[in-house]
Design a protein around this nucleic acid. Structure first.
Lengths: 353, 353
DNA sequence: AGTTAAAATGACAACGCTGTCAAACTGCAT
DNA sequence: ATGCAGTTTGACAGCGTTGTCATTTTAACT
């Protein structure tokens, strides 16, 4: 039942080491030998033992994914993207949900890395923004990739290998540009008083999205009014509260559109609008952000910015693998900056009269 | 930087094996020795090497979770429940999303098990219902726990250790009882023509929920009409289509309530009702199933049956661990049958006139 | 104190693979 | 043929634990 590398070696008439080379796709193996070994592998249905490989090798065949995000859709997409790459590379994925608030977080992550001797780590926001974690990873000398909100500001993409190993390990999502675009969409619909319901203030994405919204207003000669900005968090409840607060005495401000920091907030705003008997989009336009599945399951369906999370995380994994031992071929197809694209659905419409 | 068991042994003045015993919480270690070792462990910040333990031991310190479910909330809850137990036991979790349709599925799972030498497997529906997978697991002789829809029919819970290792490895969710209860709730509200929008026909949960619904009707002398049953799947879209089909010529049948096979279907029905200008719950009551977060994010909020997925999966993990090597204490607190409890919210109300 | 069983500890060889480094082969120019 | 550099292969020693089994210590009795 249990087939070892030794069995394969005997069967193919070569040494264990040669089989090992084939398994690991090392370059210096003659085609003939390669085929011979592969045939034996197939015939015996050999399965390399992960534990043994991890123990004997310099690093293990596992990477980690750490996250602290209440949004199940987001997390699943992230997992699946990374997982698909892991499958191709023959790696395992160790998932690690955690609590960004915990000041001991970086220690917990360090423990996990050491126990599993992870080959690398993918960090999602907001963990990817925490300096103490980054410092810890640098100290440990482990490869990692950060998912960040912002733009790739690499001075000039040099053809040289980057001097510092720390650089070139970020994947950016340009929330600024996407928020700008959505805001322009609303402005083009004739909206002049557009509110913004923020997500968690600590998240970089919040500031980026807010900045995009503000820039769009400025560029179109609309006043940026702090009273139109609600500071909440990325939850449905926060969306409900935000909309309620914003719309309470709406005679004065006359808000005709709300840009939600994410889909949950927008769905919450939708909910609040309904409570207040406000017709969407006739009386009020609401836009989400992220395009999570339920932005299609609200009534009406949400206009939002599509963020291809599973693609993003897949590229994060690619970038990570390009930094780990194999590192065979330079993966030139890695996209490092993603800009969510606007998806117009039914929750936004022309400004009333 | 790297601390081995040998270092700890020297530091504590005992043998490696004794340290190993302490790490693994084996019984025959004197308290004094135990403390001595633990102190050394703490002082040196020793982290057991998972790979080495996996290799040397009889089975690895990892269990698997396989699923094929499009519902992100469900999957995340399952993961978190199992993960919390893994953390306590010092195990790793290998997640494995897969496609139940694939006829080669069981081979893929077998490969994963062998590569990672998994100590056990938690199977969620519908994978847990597939005979080919079960057969494969039995053949491999690996411990596994199945999450199933139904009731625990163990003849009489004997105090003896079960004869066959195959028995006592299921966790049941009593969908029948929950569907019955929800249906009674609707009946008590005066509804006489209650429709049911099914999930995937192949899923056991679908038949169980349907049966519960039908029994409730019968027990209350209401006719069970197949025309009131829509065969869909567990998606939002299916809910939309189902409700549309059901309500199309509603003058004839006069449906006043729809029981959705899950929350997504119910949300879809809600959506369809809105399209058709039907007031919820004034003209039509709609109920969901599962109590996923977005049953609280619809308008109006969904009446549903609360299914504590993370608790359920945690117990599944417990049951699994009670079957793996450690198996130290008999975990007597494992619940093997869960009955979702009804949560009444705003989407159901008295039958019109 | 002396005996004996039980409990606690230790010595050492696996576990299945990869890194290191040396050996054997290859092709090519002499 | 001969030598040489480059390529391909192999021998063997770990990697850091745990299982086995032998040995020592303890406790519980005469």
């Amino acid at each position: 039942m249990k087939v070892t590398i030794n069995d394969v070696a005997k069967h193919a008439g070569v040494s264990m080491k040669t089989v090992s080379r084939v398994i690991n796709k090392e370059p210096s193996v003659r085609k003939k030998t390669y085929d011979l070994v592969m045939q034996a592998v197939t015939e015996l249905n050999y399965q390399p033992n992960t534990a043994a490989r991890n123990l004997a090798g310099t690093s293990s065949f596992a990477i980690g994914l750490v996250y602290d995000n209440p949004n199940a859709y987001y997390v699943i997409d992230m997992q699946n993207g990374v997982l698909s790459r892991c499958k191709d590379e023959g790696y395992e994925l160790v998932i690690h949900p955690c609590c960004a608030q915990d000041p001991e977080m970086h220690k917990e992550i360090a423990t996990m890395i050491q126990r599993s001797r992870l080959a690398g780590l993918v960090l999602t926001p907001p963990l990817s923004e925490q300096q103490d974690i980054i410092d810890m990873l640098d100290e440990l000398g482990i490869a990692y990739v950060r998912l960040l909100s912002g733009q790739d500001k690499t001075p000039e993409k040099s053809t040289e290998v980057p001097a510092s190993p720390k650089s070139n390990n970020c994947i950016y999502v340009d929330d600024y540009a996407a928020a700008y675009e959505i805001t322009v969409h609303l402005i083009n619909l004739g909206h002049k008083t557009i509110a913004f319901a923020c997500g968690d203030a600590e998240h970089k994405s919040t500031t980026e999205r807010l900045a995009g919204y503000q820039s769009a207003l400025k560029d179109h000669n609309l006043t940026v009014d702090d009273n139109l900005i609600y500071e909440g968090n990325y939850s449905f409840e926060s969306g409900v509260e935000g909309a309620k607060a914003l719309l309470k005495n709406n005679n004065a401000s006359n808000i005709t559109a709300i840009l939600g920091g994410n889909d949950e907030i927008a769905a919450g705003a939708l909910f609040a609008a309904r409570l207040m008997n406000i017709a969407i989009p006739e009386q009020l336009s609401i836009s989400g952000f992220e395009d999570s599945p339920f932005s299609r399951q609200t009534w009406p369906k949400l206009t939002t910015a599509h963020q291809a999370n599973s693609v993003i995380s897949e590229h994060a994994a690619r970038l990570l693998f390009s930094k780990t031992r194999g590192s065979r071929k330079q993966d030139k197809d890695i996209i490092t900056t993603f800009t969510p694209s606007i998806v117009i659905r039914e929750s936004t419409g022309p400004a009333p009269n």
